[in-house]
Design a protein around this nucleic acid. Structure first.
Lengths: 235, 235
DNA sequence: AAAATGTTAGACACCACTGTCAAAATTAAC
DNA sequence: GTTAATTTTGACAGTGGTGTCTAACATTTT
């Protein structure tokens, strides 16, 4: 239940709950939601940097500018902290992805141009976003050790994202712009092509520049459209 | 120096040195190269499973069926062990990639068919290979903590692999089969497309089945060729 | 069989971390 | 200004890891 709420409603996990009466968690007693967020952010960073097992609560507390005891008071032990982090970051990443998906050019005038601009937003806001990168890393590294959490993440992360992405490409096809027999496949390939040309430095600290983003998007969309353009006459 | 030898000559690091006099390392005194390999393999597995910082030498020793002291005798402390593992796995992966690249269809009769078969080999032997997967994971997680090692890896891993891959696509283009203005870009996109459609379970233990491999290769090559096919008349 | 070499088992000091506790200090509420 | 809630501080036992050492054991080599 608790789990579901956090995954389904991003606003909740982002700490934007109305501080009213809806979310009477045992955790955040009254006001200091900021401190809780600070702890989760710090934990995300340290978990990513050191790995969950090697991450020390002291390091997290220090990064959050908080005493160790406060960490235990807010979230509990390390495993609960990790679960809270994954839920938080999943909610944020998913929200950001859906926000970006809202700008997908479903009935474009200039397919290539508008799809390229969308790819820039996708790469900048989602793929290279610190939350997204952190989440990928955490899931990839620790997923096997927390099967339940992993399953829940799959359900509310990829399980919701991919159909949404595919649906956009299906609409784009039915708008007559491209010839896409399999929207799921096209969606996977589109994402892969955008990723293919991003400088591989972005999971090592530095995010790509705007120019790099644009180049990656341009190359990806160019190839994507050449592969999926509608044939004038016979196919 | 030592570093260079191990990276440049895969056979050395794989433990196939002639056991003669060429490689008078302080490490492998005379015969028991098998034990050393066993230690490196076990360390690879445990490092991947637990992360380097959280991996215990005892766990590695147990996995290698060896006493802890023997680990220290052969390789030294944990950092040296990690460096040895990365070199070993890099050498193995690179060797396997180049072996597979040797089967690239440079002057094919049926481009699509032969490129698909190559993609199957590439995915099966390189992308989903345990060594390759382990290496990606280790580099991604620990690269930042070992800048020198990371730099050396980049030099002898991607720095050697990508030009070799690109060169194949350039030859394929000049053979008249495809229209590839930028072989580097095409190579990146080809790899990305093959990866895009592999079941994402392969870094979680189970390798993909032959059928899954073939489907991924088919989809990837189909899209790749549609994007890069030579236009009959004007382009 | 003897000698040299490699391997194991156990013990060791040392260190870093966990999770808990109680008392002091700070901050917010009324 | 007093009361209540939160946070900090420092201490604590317990755990598990490192890297070293030594003496016993096993395996080759000669």
């Amino acid at each position: 239940m608790d789990t579901l709420v956090q995954f389904v409603n991003p606003l909740y996990a982002v700490g934007m709950e109305t501080t009213s009466d809806l979310s009477r968690e045992a955790l955040a007693p009254r006001g200091q939601a900021a401190k809780r967020l600070s702890i989760l952010d710090a934990a995300t960073a340290v978990f990513c940097r050191d790995g969950v097992a090697a991450a020390s609560i002291d390091a997290i507390a220090e990064a959050a500018c908080v005493s160790r005891q406060t960490v235990y008071n807010h979230v509990g032990d390390k495993e609960k902290l990790f679960v809270a982090v994954v839920k938080e970051v999943t909610a944020r990443s998913t929200a950001r992805l859906f926000e970006t998906l809202g700008t997908f050019p479903e009935t474009p005038v200039d397919v290539e141009h508008e799809l390229t601009e969308f790819a820039v937003r996708l790469a900048g806001n989602c793929m290279c976003d610190p939350d997204g990168a952190a989440l990928r890393k955490l899931i990839e590294n620790e997923g096997q050790r927390y099967p339940e959490l992993f399953a829940t993440w799959k359900q509310y992360g990829p399980g919701k994202s991919w159909p949404a992405i595919s649906a956009r490409f299906a609409k784009l096809a039915s708008a007559g712009d491209l010839d896409i027999p399999d929207a799921n496949l096209a969606a996977r390939q589109f994402m892969a092509l955008v990723n293919a040309d991003l400088p591989n430095t972005y999971y090592m600290g530095q995010p790509p520049t705007d120019a790099e983003l644009l180049e990656a998007a341009t190359n990806a969309v160019s190839t994507f459209i050449r592969a999926y353009r509608r044939q004038s006459a016979a196919g």
